[in-house]
Deep mutational scan, measured.
Amino acid sequence: MIFPGATVRVTNVDDTYYRFEGLVQRVSDGKAAVLFENGNWDKLVTFRLSELEAVK
């Protein structure tokens, strides 16, 4: 189960963010908004829950 605050990895091989890890900001309607941070940039991207896996 994916909840806000969880760290997730993108599993969709066709996505630009494949294998990126980010922090879930919100979850609704089968989608999750994931925040990616890297140095001087932040990006908030929405994914279907089926495209994400929780990082242990």
Rank of each mutant, 00 (worst) to 15 (best):
F36H: 00
V55W: 04
D15Q: 08
S50T: 10
F3G: 08
V24E: 00
L49P: 04
V10K: 00
V8K: 00
F3N: 06
S28H: 13
V34C: 03
V27H: 01
V13R: 12
A33H: 12
V8A: 03
N40G: 12
N12A: 09
P4Y: 05
A6G: 06
S50V: 08
Y18Q: 02
L23Y: 07
R48E: 15
G22E: 01
F47E: 02
M1V: 10
N40D: 12
L44T: 09
V8R: 00
S28A: 12
T46F: 13
F47K: 05
L49H: 03
T46V: 13
A33S: 12
N40A: 12
L44I: 12
F3S: 08
N38V: 13
A33K: 07
N12Y: 04
R26P: 01
N40M: 11
V10T: 02
V27R: 02
A54Q: 09
K31N: 09
K43I: 15
A54S: 08
D42P: 13
E51W: 06
N40F: 10
L49T: 08
Y18E: 01
M1N: 12
L52V: 05
A32S: 02
S50P: 05
A32H: 01
T7E: 05
F47A: 03
E53K: 06
A6C: 13
E53W: 04
T16Y: 14
T7V: 12
T7P: 04
V24Y: 01
F3E: 09
M1T: 11
K31R: 11
K43S: 11
E51D: 14
F20T: 06
G30R: 04
E21F: 08
D15A: 11
I2Q: 01
D29V: 05
F3P: 04
T11G: 04
A33P: 00
R9S: 04
A6H: 06
Q25E: 07
V8Q: 00
A33C: 13
E53F: 05
V34T: 01
R48C: 14
V55N: 03
W41K: 10
F20G: 04
G30E: 06
N40P: 12
E21H: 09
I2L: 06
E21D: 04
N40W: 09
L52G: 00
V10I: 07
N38P: 08
E37T: 14
D14A: 11
V13I: 10
P4E: 08
W41L: 10
A6M: 14
R26A: 14
K43Q: 11
V24G: 00
A54H: 09
M1K: 11
G5N: 03
E21V: 15
R26I: 12
E51R: 02
D14P: 03
G22L: 04
T46G: 04
F3H: 10
G39V: 08
V13N: 06
A6F: 07
G30Q: 05
P4D: 04
A32Y: 05
F47I: 09
K56V: 14
D42N: 15
W41I: 11
G30T: 05
F47M: 07
V45K: 08
V55L: 07
N38R: 12
S28K: 10
K31S: 10
V24W: 01
P4L: 06
T16F: 14
V10E: 00
D15T: 11
K31V: 12
G30P: 01
T7L: 14
F36A: 00
V55Y: 05
D14V: 08
N40S: 12
V24K: 00
W41S: 10
F47V: 06
D14Q: 10
G22K: 00
V34H: 01
D15N: 15
R26K: 11
L23Q: 09
W41Y: 10
K43C: 14
F3R: 11
V24I: 04
D42Y: 15
G5E: 02
A33R: 07
T46R: 06
T7G: 04
E37F: 12
L35D: 03
D15E: 05
W41R: 08
A33Y: 14
S50W: 13
F3A: 10
V34I: 07
P4S: 05
V8P: 00
G22C: 03
P4F: 05
M1S: 11
G5Y: 03
T11Q: 05
N38Q: 11
V55G: 03
L35A: 06
D15R: 07
N12M: 06
A54Y: 13
L35H: 07
G39Q: 08
K43D: 09
D29E: 10
E53Q: 08
R26W: 15
Q25N: 04
V13H: 08
V13K: 14
D29W: 06
A54P: 12
V45Y: 05
L44P: 06
V13M: 09
E51H: 07
M1R: 12
T16M: 14
F20P: 01
V27T: 04
V34R: 00
A32I: 06
V45F: 05
L23V: 15
